[in-house]
Amino acid sequence: MTAIPGPPTEESPYDPVDLTPCFNNTGISPASDTGRGSFNVWGNSFPAESLPSGRAPVTVDGVPFRFPPVGRGNDNVRCAGQFVPVETGRFDWLHLLAAAERRTEDTMAMHFEDGTVDPEWIRVSDFWAAPARFGETKAFETPVMHYPHHVQQGVSALLWAQRVPVTRRADLKGFRLPRNVALHIFAATLQQTAVVASEHSHAQ
């Protein structure tokens, strides 16, 4: 694995996950070369000018992410069943910056050190001028959409902040993304399990 060097600090309960080895799609393009991006089957893409710069630290809802590289090739994971190993640890949430070609929901698999595996739902709304159908936070909304041959005014592209629970109280060692080409992951951060000060107790 996988943790990206640099911020956040040691005190941070968040561990950014390096998805770079899985990047297989270019979903962001510059206005000068809109044809470089191909997020969906129509060749549309997010406008780079309306998003953070490549590798920039960004925070959404208090969760830190490392934005993917922009303008240097692939910048997101089009889900195709990739397995992402992580540094073993206890986590409550997998936070994602994600977008979808039409709203979609699927299952991913959480793999634990003790050999157990849990499927969990991952739900992401449409990137195309749509509301947050699954209650996500709108991380970035662009004022334009990139088409293969032009910049389209009046159509927004949406990048969502979504989260997937890690329900098992066991050490996570990795997760497998669904085989679902509609689903794209741009960044991921694991949130560590909060340390509980008191022991379990019950009334006598």
């Binding site: 089957v41 979808a100 709203r103 929901e105 080409v181």
Partner: peptide, 18 residues
């Protein structure tokens, strides 16, 4: 609505595999 969402994966898999 889950039916509608399942159509997404099927339709897009077909579209990208055209």
């Amino acid at each position: 609505e889950g039916v509608a969402h399942a159509w997404t994966a099927l339709r897009m898999t077909g579209a990208h595999g055209f």
